[in-house]
Amino acid sequence: MRVDAANNKMRLVRAVRDVISEQGRAAVTAKEIACKAGVGTATLYRHFENKDTLIDEVSIVRWMQMEQTARQGAQMGGSSLEDIIRTLDFFTRMINADNQFIDIVGVKIGWSPEPIRPIRRAFETPFTDMWVRCQREGAIRRSAHPRDAIDMAGSVRNGERRLQMLTMVVGGFCTGAVDAEALVHDMVVSGKLKARTSF
């Protein structure tokens, strides 16, 4: 895809997220979305079959960013537990930034519509690799499942208490050998949890 076409596509994704957050799903037209993106309606339909596929693209982009974050963590060779926490932190930041859009379109925690499933599975591969490595190292409980951690992080919707809630999620899957509260606090103080919040 050419750079200008890719930029137009991302402008449309941002625009649909923003317009729906402001006006609701039913009231928004393709023309309003295209106008907000600064492109023509024909450009919208060149990239997306209809408004619903454009709405799905918001989640696809979100999971693509999650996959990128998890793959970077898996490749960096540092602490897998820190990389897991960094990924969960990034997810909670995105969820909080897009909270109104998520509520309006009715995205449910733990469930992905068919178009989103392949990219979510692509994210789950490197995330699960880090998770299993942490289980082998004794940092994560054997009974804890990586998908549960993601779903719990996805339910962290209170921006003011986001960090405390993330700490509780982390504490829930770490073994007693890990001081989850101190680890998350240290990562915040060191700036390791500062990341972009959305696209």
Rank of each mutant, 00 (worst) to 15 (best):
D83Q: 10
I84D: 07
I84E: 09
I84Y: 06
I84M: 02
I85R: 08
R86M: 07
R86V: 04
R86E: 14
T87F: 00
L88K: 05
L88Q: 01
D89T: 10
D89H: 02
D89W: 13
F90K: 04
F90Q: 10
F90H: 08
F91S: 10
F91M: 04
T92G: 03
T92S: 02
T92W: 08
R93H: 06
R93S: 13
M94H: 14
M94R: 05
I95E: 06
I95W: 06
I95S: 14
N96W: 06
N96Q: 11
D98M: 12
D98F: 05
N99G: 12
Q100W: 05
F101K: 04
F101D: 02
F101E: 02
D103V: 09
D103Y: 03
I104P: 04
G106L: 12
G106M: 01
G106R: 11
V107T: 15
V107D: 14
V107F: 15
K108S: 11
K108G: 09
K108V: 07
K108I: 11
I109T: 15
W111H: 07
W111V: 15
W111T: 08
S112A: 09
P113Q: 13
E114A: 15
P115Y: 12
I116T: 02
I116D: 11
R117L: 08
R117Q: 01
R117G: 00
R117T: 08
R117Y: 05
R117A: 03
P118N: 03
I119V: 15
I119S: 00
I119E: 15
R120I: 01
R120Y: 01
R120F: 08
R121I: 02
R121G: 11
R121K: 14
A122C: 05
F123L: 11
F123K: 12
F123Q: 09
E124S: 10
